[in-house]
Design a protein around this nucleic acid. Structure first.
Lengths: 113, 113
DNA sequence: TCTTTTACTTAGACTCGCTATGTATGTCCA
DNA sequence: TGGACATACATAGCGAGTCTAAGTAAAAGA
């Protein structure tokens, strides 16, 4: 199985919002979580993930909060915002529309009788 | 319905190969055909389509042949090659894998008992 | 101590879809 | 005849987003 990660373009935002809707997470955790849940398919690179998170935060769709761990280390936990939830709902719909359009090409409808 | 054409990235090659597998077509026809079949969803721009066709031809996946019309005009008909058919079969599989991975994120599997 | 893992950041390359423009001809209608 | 519109292909340059690659830093484990 060869993952086609270029298919990701345009979907990564939705994936991230979707994860963060389920619970707040930090970057490194997101990478691991995506990999585990997709059974190894998604392996976000840092160069993909962090800029994406920064973009989402800048757009007000997520909010990052630094959190201090007992051992003194810091993690940046991202929470989805209300705007982010609206956006996610919209993107899910758009994703369905896209799939439907693709299906029409791959399996052309027979002409109506 | 707002088409999310950026989802197209990485899928346009497959779409084109898929169309051309069904029958040889020329550029302008492809644009129209995609729009009709997808019920208006896909509206390839020239700046998307023609470079894509050139790339596919350069990779040996399709083959363009100029054809003279009775009225003296020329059209470039593209045919899928054997390599193109192999590639398409592979991309369909990869597309399924991608969908499966997405689904795992959107609808997390319940933990096994 | 040394390696691996955790954790975040960013610069630069590359791909690919888009806008915009150019060329040229055919068709339809007034 | 002239103008508008559809047909038909091409490409330069922009922009968005993913990747490679490198840097920083500290905890955990061998």
């Amino acid at each position: 199985m060869i993952p086609r990660r270029d298919l990701l373009k345009g979907s990564s935002n939705s994936l991230l919002l979707c994860l963060l809707e389920q619970q707040p997470m930090y970057g490194y955790q997101i990478v691991k979580e995506l990999e585990v849940r997709s059974q190894g398919y998604f392996k976000f690179k840092e160069g993909t993930l962090y800029p994406a998170l920064h973009r989402l935060e800048k757009s007000g769709l997520i909010l990052g909060k630094w959190q201090m761990l007992p051992n003194g280390r810091q993690r940046r936990y991202y929470h989805i915002t209300a705007r982010g939830q609206d956006k996610l709902a919209m993107e899910k719909t758009q994703w369905q529309d896209f799939l439907a359009a693709i299906k029409l090409i791959l399996q052309p409808e027979p002409a109506s009788p």
